[in-house]
């Protein structure tokens, strides 16, 4: 008996099968992979998410629209095909997002999720013990701060709008965006402090 085909062999067979049925065009996979590598400035990426946050920090009208209807507020920047909600941190409340059932993530804004977000460890534990999980990221949640963990169980995707760090008065959007990392947008990190 021949050994089971490897994942690479199975992927090759699958590509051939899809091409034979006209579902996949010749060269389509390579073209898609090349396109993903040469993404333009408005392509989904943590940097795009950081720009959204920086704009919300500096433009109260945009912030209000973003919290009310993120899909409409972001239509010019990035057309979305899934519902999106933005979760606003306050001095007494912090949000963190997860998908316990699979790996739902705001990919249309941030690009592909990091591997840790898809891990069994994060998915199983963050709903039960979020303070311990955040501590593993080096993120201490102050005593008395409320913590809301959002399990992305429907098609709606979430993005965290963190508190603007102190000491950033007068900063422009670009400089502010530099304080926002991908983990900040997921809720497992705080924005970098102003320096």
């Amino acid at each position: 008996m021949s050994p089971d085909p490897s994942p690479a062999q199975r992927t090759e067979s699958l590509e051939r099968h899809l091409r034979d049925h006209g579902v996949l065009a010749d060269g389509e996979v390579d073209a898609d992979l090349a396109r993903a590598e040469s993404a333009d400035g408005n392509a989904p990426s943590p940097a795009l998410g950081a720009r959204v946050v920086a704009r919300a920090w500096t433009d109260p009208t945009f912030r209000a629209r973003l919290l009310d209807d993120a899909v409409a507020a972001l239509a010019d920047l990035r057309p979305l095909t899934v519902p999106v909600a933005v979760l606003e941190d306050t001095p007494t409340l912090h949000h963190v997002i997860v998908c316990t059932l699979c790996s739902c993530y705001p990919s249309e804004l941030l690009g592909p999720p990091p591997a840790w977000y898809k891990s069994f460890e994060y998915r199983s534990r963050v709903v039960r013990e979020p303070r311990a999980v955040l501590a593993e990221f080096g993120t201490e949640v102050p005593e008395g701060m409320e913590l809301d963990v959002h399990d992305s169980t429907a098609e709606q995707r979430y993005l965290v709008l963190p508190l603007r760090p102190t000491g950033t008065d007068g900063w422009d959007e670009q400089r502010l965006a530099g304080l926002v990392t991908r983990n900040v947008l997921i809720g497992t990190a705080w924005p970098r402090p102003a320096t």
């Binding site: 069994f120 998915r123 199983s124 039960r128 999980v133």
Partner: peptide, 21 residues
């Protein structure tokens, strides 16, 4: 088994595994 929320027994989150995987 995909329904992992709240399950015990998984270890530390691989926080440094940061790429698309």
């Amino acid at each position: 088994v995909h329904d992992l929320g709240g399950m015990h027994g998984f270890g530390p989150v691989p926080v440094d595994d940061d790429g698309p995987g």
